[in-house]
Design a binder for these strands. Structure first.
Lengths: 346, 346
DNA sequence: TTGTAGGCGTTATCAG
DNA sequence: CTGATAACGCCTACAA
C-alpha cells in the first residue's frame, strides 16, 4: 500500500493498487455500469473507503468531452430575485448530481459576453442565463449557431426559438398597473430599470402602457434608472413627484427599485400610500416585511430556476427549445393605497 | 482547413492546422510564456480569432493538476448577507482570472459535508466556506489533514490555525447590546439563529451576555430559531413579548431575523420602537429601507469576500493561515428606540 | 524559435 | 467478468 496521499491527489490508480485490481475495474465499480463480481466490487469499495477517494471530475470530463456542471449567469446576486432563482437552480442541479458555476454581469453587456465566454471555456454542459436583451445578443447568436444548449431565465424574447423559463412580463405589467388604477389612481408614472440593461423592464413598461390605454389615461412620467445608482436620481424623482401634474400612482419595474423609491419618498415626506401608491415587481421576500407591505407581482423565481435547469437537461437529450411561461401572482399590499380590489394574476 | 466545428469543440489542434504550426506553438502563444517569433504569434492569433477558439480549461486543469476555480459554500443565497459576500468573491475572482463554483448547505451539516466533497471532486484550487461550526467540523479536520487550502467567511473559530475573514462577533454582539442599553432598555432578550447551525449566532449571544453582565442586567429570554421557519415560532415569541417580565429590547442575531420579527410584532400590534426596541446584525441593504430603519451591526460582506479570496491566493503561494479581522460598524436606526447615543464600532 | 512526444485521471473499447 | 490500452485537450521537457 502506497503512502496515503492527500485526498485531492488520489487517483483510481491508487485505489486499484490498494484493492489489487486494475484501474478499469475500479472505474467500473465507481460508475456501476458494467457487470462486476460482487466480491470484487466489495474489495474496491473498501479500498475507496479506506483511502477516502473521490473521483476526479476533471479527468472524467476531459474524457467525456462534457461536464455535469451548469454555467449560470445573473445580472447581480445582490438582487434577491436572482439569488432566489439561483437557489432553485442549485436545488435541481443537486438532485441531478450537477454542479453550478456562477458569474454575474452587473447588467453590463460586455461583462455578460466575457462571463459567458469564461463559462464556456469550462466546457460546461449547458448555460442558464439572464441577459440584458435576449432578442439582440451577439453572444446568444453565437450560442445558437454553435448549438450550445442554454435556457434563459426572466428574459422573454419575442422570437420563439430561444429556450426560456419566465413569466409573461407584459401581462404582469398590465396587471400591476390595473391594480393601481383599480385602487383609484389616475395619474400614473413608472420607475424602470434601464431598458438597455433589461428587456424585462421594457416589457413591463409595455404592459404599463397597455393598461393606461385601456383606461384612457396618459403616462405622467417614465423614469429610467440604472440598477445600481438610485440615490443619484433623487432630484429627478423629487421633481417628478412634486411637479404640476404629479403622479399619485407609481409602478416600479423591480421590488428593489420600489423599496428604494419608498425610502426616498419617506425622506422627502411624501406619504406612501397616502400621497402615492406603489406597486413593485418580483415578489422578493423582504417586500412582505415592509410597512406598508409592498404590493407586487410575484414571480416564482425558485421554481423558475428549477424548471430552467430541468429544461436544460431535456435540451441536452435533444428536446426542442421551449418557452416555459410560469404563472405569476399579484400580491396586494399596503403600498398600493386607494380602495383597491386586487385583480387575480393568471 | 477543417470544417468549422462548434466553438465548444475546437481544440488547439484545429488552431494549429489553421495557422500551419504545431500545437505546441499554439499553446505557447496562448500562454505567452516562451519566446515566439512575432509573425508566428500573429498567425496563431489570427487563426484563433478566425475560428473563435477558446482554450479548454478542462484539459489545462488536468494537465496542471489544479484549477483556477474556487469552490464556494454558503449557508443560503437567500440571505442577502451571504449573497453579498459571494459578490465580493466574484469580483476578486474575476480580477484574478478565476471562476466560481458555488454550493449551498441550507445550514445543514450533512449537506455541508456533501457539498464540500463535491467541490473537491472538481479539484478546485481552493475553498471559501461558511460552515455551521468552524471549531468542530469533521470536514474541516479532513481539509486540514490533507492540506487543502481554504478560508472561512463569517466563521470565527476559537482555534487560530484556521484561515478566516470575519469580524469580531463577540465584540459586535456586545456593541449591539450596549446600544440597546444606552437607549434606555433594561429588559433585554435575544432572538438567535440556532446555535448548532451557526457558531456566529452563539458568539453574538456571548457578546449579548457580556454586555448584560457589564450593566448588571439579567437576560429576559433567549429564543433560538431555525433560519428558515420563523412563522412557526410566532406563538412562542408572542408569549415572550407579552409575558410578565416582557422585554423592551430585542437583539436579533441576523437582520433577516430582525425584519421577520418586526413584521411579526407589527401583526401583533406591538409597536417598534415604541414598545420594543430592536437591533439586528449583518447590515443587509434592505434594512436601511425599512420604516423604521433597522439599527444593526454592519459587516463588510463584500470586502470580506474579496479579502477571503485574496488570502486564499496567498495561501496557495504558501502563506500561513491568517485570521483576518475586519472592522464592523454600528449603524443606528429608528428601530432602536429610546434616547440612544450610538456607540462607535471598532 | 519550433516540433515531437509523454502524461495528467478518467472512461470505453477490445481482448482474454 | 477483468485487464491492458487508447484516447480526451492541454502543457512542457527534450530535441532539433
Amino acid at each position: 500500500m502506497r503512502n496515503r496521499a492527500a485526498y485531492s491527489k488520489l487517483t483510481i490508480r491508487d485505489v486499484a493498487a490498494e484493492a489489487g485490481v486494475s484501474i478499469a475495474t475500479v472505474s467500473r465499480v465507481l460508475n456501476g455500469r458494467a457487470p462486476i463480481a460482487p466480491e470484487t466490487a466489495a474489495k474496491v469499495r473498501a479500498a475507496v473507503e479506506r483511502l477516502g477517494f473521490r473521483a476526479n471530475r476533471t479527468g472524467r470530463e476531459l474524457r467525456a468531452g462534457i461536464s455535469r456542471t451548469v454555467g449560470v449567469l445573473v445580472p447581480s446576486l445582490d438582487n434577491p430575485v436572482f439569488a432566489e432563482s439561483v437557489t432553485g437552480i442549485q436545488e435541481a442541479a443537486r438532485d441531478a448530481g450537477w454542479s453550478v458555476l456562477i458569474a454575474s454581469s452587473g447588467y453590463d453587456v460586455e461583462r455578460e459576453n466575457e462571463a459567458i465566454g469564461n463559462l464556456l471555456s469550462h466546457r460546461v454542459g449547458g448555460l442558464l442565463l439572464t441577459v440584458a436583451d435576449a432578442d439582440r445578443s451577439a453572444t446568444l447568436d453565437t450560442l445558437d449557431r454553435e448549438q450550445t444548449p442554454y435556457v434563459l431565465l426572466y428574459n422573454q424574447p419575442d422570437r420563439d426559438d430561444r429556450a426560456t423559463a419566465t413569466i409573461d412580463n407584459v401581462a404582469a405589467g398590465r396587471d400591476a398597473t390595473r391594480a393601481l388604477i383599480a385602487a383609484g389612481h389616475r395619474r400614473l408614472a413608472m420607475v424602470a430599470g434601464r431598458f438597455v440593461a433589461s428587456d424585462r423592464s421594457k416589457q413591463r413598461h409595455r404592459g404599463f402602457s397597455e393598461a393606461l390605454a385601456e383606461a384612457r389615461l396618459e403616462q405622467v412620467a417614465l423614469i429610467e434608472l440604472d440598477f445600481d445608482a438610485v440615490a443619484a436620481f433623487d432630484p429627478m424623482i423629487r421633481a417628478v413627484l412634486t411637479g404640476p401634474n404629479r403622479p399619485t400612482g407609481l409602478f416600479c419595474s423591480t421590488d428593489l427599485l420600489a423599496l428604494r423609491i419608498m425610502a426616498l419618498l419617506r425622506e422627502a415626506h411624501v406619504a406612501v400610500p397616502g400621497e402615492v401608491g406603489i406597486v413593485g415587481f418580483d415578489g422578493i421576500a423582504v417586500g412582505r416585511l415592509m410597512a406598508p407591505s409592498l404590493a407586487t407581482i410575484v414571480q416564482p423565481s425558485r421554481e423558475m430556476g428549477r424548471r430552467a435547469f430541468q429544461h436544460l437537461l431535456a435540451r441536452l437529450e435533444g428536446a426542442a427549445p421551449e418557452q416555459i411561461l410560469l404563472p405569476y401572482e399579484f400580491r396586494p399590499g399596503g403600498s398600493l393605497g386607494g380602495t383597491a380590489n386586487a385583480p387575480q394574476g393568471e
